[in-house]
């Protein structure tokens, strides 16, 4: 039970860089290898495209980015630094509009957290709760994953850690009923934020998506504007299927923003670029580890530059 251990404080970019260092280094080495003192020709562009593909940017997005890049720089003598900088710049440009932190203003603000199985919903809720508790907010958690074994217990442990009460019903209970009760309590007892956990569900399961819709319908009986935020938690390890996930969740339950988890591995989360380009959904935060303070605001430039292997000298964003 040492999930919150190792809470040494560092700048968020430092943490992110540490988390991303492995992937960025590899990517950077690759690009450096390709571009040292060479003219930018088609072969190099192809290789560059492959590097982007390997970062999970997807075949389409990679091709577009490289085409744009080639248009402006084809035939020029380029240094690795320039190449990386320019690409980071283009990626940051795509990401910039979606880098929006989550700052709930409603009282109580209802935040519904959804996603496929194993994406990291409960852990993300724990981290968000911690963040908002530190800001002095009163946070209530609702253990809406009544399906998976011990999901309730998992959230309860997080509740104890961060000092947030958890609304609980028995296993197999109706998540909509639980959400309703939780909102009633949040209003009655003057909580600032209600975070509702939900069971993981594949976006392809129509019945489970209906269940989620019901949660929302029931919440709206108490507050027509609820849920004020509907966060989709995405695993950075996920490949191109993330596009299908976002598309379906967005159309079914009106997702308002994304949290991308597990960015501390070698997975680069490049699909985020395609997601930003296609869906324009805000990316509120990224997860770079298992402990409670491993949730970071998402910075477009930081993410893009870090992805391109730039050193901490860029740590101003």
């Amino acid at each position: 039970m040492s999930e919150s251990g190792g809470t040494e404080k560092r700048g968020w970019f430092g943490r992110l860089r540490q988390g991303l260092s492995r992937s960025s280094t590899k990517l950077a080495e690759g690009i450096t290898g390709i571009f040292t003192k060479r003219k930018l020709d088609q072969e190099m562009l192809d290789e560059l495209e492959e590097l982007l593909i390997q970062a999970d940017l997807g075949a389409g997005t990679s091709a577009e980015l490289v085409a744009e890049f080639g248009r402006t720089r084809f035939g020029k003598e380029v240094t690795p630094e320039e190449v990386r900088g320019a690409l980071a710049g283009e990626i940051a440009e795509i990401l910039e509009p979606v880098a929006k932190p989550l700052t709930p203003t409603e009282t109580p603000a209802v935040v519904l957290v959804v996603g496929v199985n194993g994406s990291g919903k409960t852990t993300t809720i724990g981290k968000l709760a911690r963040l908002w508790r530190e800001e002095g907010k009163r946070v209530l958690l609702a253990a809406g994953d009544t399906f998976r074994a011990a999901a309730v217990e998992q959230l309860q442990i997080w509740g104890e850690r961060v000092g947030a009460p958890v609304v609980v019903k028995g296993a197999g209970a109706d998540p909509a009923g639980l959400a309703y009760e939780a909102l009633e309590r949040a209003r009655a007892e003057g909580f600032d934020i209600l975070l509702i956990d939900t069971a993981g569900r594949l976006h392809t399961k129509a019945n489970l998506m209906e269940e989620l819709k019901k949660v929302i319908r029931v919440l709206r009986k108490l507050d027509e504007s609820a849920p004020h935020h509907c966060l989709l938690v995405l695993d950075a390890t996920t490949g191109q299927n993330a596009l299908a996930q976002v598309e379906t969740f967005k159309s079914m339950v009106d997702v308002t923003g994304l949290v991308v988890t597990k960015l501390d591995g070698t997975a680069k989360g490049g699909v985020l670029v395609a997601l930003a380009d296609r869906f324009k959904l805000p990316v509120h935060a990224i997860g770079v580890g298992e402990s409670a303070d491993d949730l970071r605001p998402f910075s477009a430039e930081g993410f893009a530059r870090s992805l391109m292997g730039f050193s901490a000298a860029a740590d101003q964003s």
Binding site: S2, E3, A150, A151
Partner: peptide, 17 residues
């Protein structure tokens, strides 16, 4: 799994089921 909260409990519950 001594790391994730309630992971051991999860397997125990699945075992009972």
């Amino acid at each position: 799994d001594t790391r994730r909260p309630a992971a051991q409990e999860q397997l125990a519950q699945l075992g009972r089921q």
